[in-house]
Nucleic acid binder design. Sequence first.
DNA 1: AGCTGTGAACTCTTTCACAGCA
DNA 2: TGCTGTGAAAGAGTTCACAGCT
Lengths: 211, 211
Amino acid sequence: MEPVGVPLPTLRRLPLYLRLFEQKATSGELWLSSEAMARELGFGAIQVRKDLGAVGALGSPKRGFPVGETSLLLGRFLGADDCSETFMVGTGPLARAVLADEGIGRRGFRIVAIFEPDPGAQHPEDRRYQPLDKLPELALRMGTRLAILAVEPRWAGEAAATIARAGIGGVLDLTGTALSFPPGIAVVRESFSAGLSALAGAVRSKRGPED
Amino acid sequence: MEPVGVPLPTLRRLPLYLRLFEQKATSGELWLSSEAMARELGFGAIQVRKDLGAVGALGSPKRGFPVGETSLLLGRFLGADDCSETFMVGTGPLARAVLADEGIGRRGFRIVAIFEPDPGAQHPEDRRYQPLDKLPELALRMGTRLAILAVEPRWAGEAAATIARAGIGGVLDLTGTALSFPPGIAVVRESFSAGLSALAGAVRSKRGPED
DNA sequence: AGCTGTGAACTCTTTCACAGCA
DNA sequence: TGCTGTGAAAGAGTTCACAGCT
């Protein structure tokens, strides 16, 4: 029932369950059992139940979890709410890929401003564009608490410092660099090369990272 | 000493250490202590030592870890070696962002072929382009074991099936969908929206996912 | 002194076993 | 009978405490 204290590994799996519920919703199904989910995702049914239980999802014996209700619950827990407004820092291919990602909008997040630290980069033809040094002021004024860091590696330090100074609460760091953020700010790191490296290590270790 | 049996959480942190060693290498420093690394990354020094120890890195009392040697060791463990050749599936903005990522090449991975399942999409002006149904044959002939899945969500299922059929050993799944792969194939999932969702959950829970 | 390496304690996560409900 | 919910056991991963090298 209480949304506080959800383990991080669980937090990482929840988006997958939500996606699965959404898929079932569009195909008109009303119930989805933990065992079916487990089969499709490749991990244990008990784990699925524990994960869903951690955010208060309630299933029905013999049928499973109600698709509509549960996907609403997950969506409310994972998505928008009070921190849906998000800053984008960066305008390169990576930033463009994020902006093109339809999943972000579906989760209720909105990219409300775009910043670019590199003065040499050309400004995007986007109404949301702002110079980087406006970030702290805007964060304060709009109450924005999330930022996506998608700049070229060599601008990562400067951008991170600006974000930290602005009192942002959480950063999705896509730069693949080893940045330091002050404690108290939540950081989730994702990087293509780090993911590939971990994958290669797992393949070499002859076991999947999620089995 | 033995590269087998490295815990997945460790595997996920190793790329950050490597990045840090590379940064120190370019600034000419010869030694790097676990405590300095811990401070910069925001986690415990003992953990850094255990992680490095897991891949056989050897430090020197009073000085720390030798920058050159350790970064070579980490690079060898995380990077290329026998499975450096990688397939890209997808040609959209996400795929382009991956292709533009300089970190991937630096780790020794090479994107050797690019596939697109959508017949409506225009083929990229890239010599590496191949139709999707050539994937299994090429995988067999080239011995490729890694694939990056970066297609539009609605093509994810078909692409995943082709990859599975081809005997690929590991997939970096960037689609954000809930795909099922046969057991025995390693899967690392990364998704902007899933990362954002996990971040929002962590911020709401008032604690960072890595503290 | 300063920092590494490691077995042991501890904590977090996953899995098991079974009770309960439709 | 089929699937959920949960306390208990097992398994991983993290942190502690301290020995050892330089």
